[in-house]
């Protein structure tokens, strides 16, 4: 088996591997500051009275916040016991980067199954959903698509699905 065939086989084995599991609390301070961080000046992120005036049951979160929310609110004592060890994507990216190249965020998708609000607790579980390689304009591009599915921890309702396409370009 040559290097390219070996890499294709490694990529195929990556599909379906778990990427992580975490439980997060959506905290008001981080939500409000994240809104400012993306230049969203809506008062509904800053003041519960403004959210109420807009007919909302609480302070909502900006549409891209789920990409960042486990930076906060991922409290040690709340984490599930069966978190996968190691990083499936990290291993592959590390082996690709050993040959040089750059890592790019190619695409990002969010599916919102229901709105979430400050105070909600969510349980997320991730896996690799696709991994492939192609050549383009003299570059070898390796694509790894990961998916994180978040459920409301109290009701079990599906809340947000996040899909990221990460590219290694050599």
């Amino acid at each position: 088996m040559n290097d390219a065939e070996q890499l294709d086989e490694d990529l195929t084995k990556l599909i379906g591997r778990p990427t992580g599991k975490s439980r997060v609390v959506l905290e008001r301070g981080p939500v409000s500051y994240f809104a400012i961080g993306v230049c969203d000046k809506s008062p509904v992120y800053q003041d519960p009275r403004a959210a109420e005036a807009a007919g909302l049951p609480g302070i909502p979160v900006p549409p891209t916040f789920s990409f960042a929310w486990d930076t906060w609110g991922k409290f040690a004592e709340m984490q599930p016991d069966d978190v996968p060890q190691g990083s499936a994507v990290g291993e592959v990216v590390g082996s690709l980067m050993s040959k040089g190249g750059v890592i790019l965020h190619g695409e990002q998708e969010f599916v919102y199954h229901k709105p979430v609000f400050v105070g909600d607790v969510l349980l997320g579980e991730g896996k690799v959903v696709d991994a492939y390689r192609k050549e383009s304009k003299g570059h070898v591009m390796t694509f790894v698509v990961t998916e994180m599915v978040w459920h409301d921890d109290k009701t079990g309702d599906l809340a947000v699905t996040s899909r990221s396409n990460i590219i290694h370009r050599l």
């Binding site: 969203d40 809506s42 891209t64 190619g106 990002q108």
Partner: peptide, 29 residues
């Protein structure tokens, strides 16, 4: 950050349709 761009664009979309109106949002960087 690519995600800053997506966030800024998301702010423009949700300023218009409403802050909890989205069902899906996908971009290519």
């Amino acid at each position: 950050h690519g995600m800053f761009s997506m966030g800024l664009l998301g702010a423009a979309i949700t300023d218009w349709v409403g802050k909890t109106a989205l069902t899906r949002y996908k971009v290519r960087f």
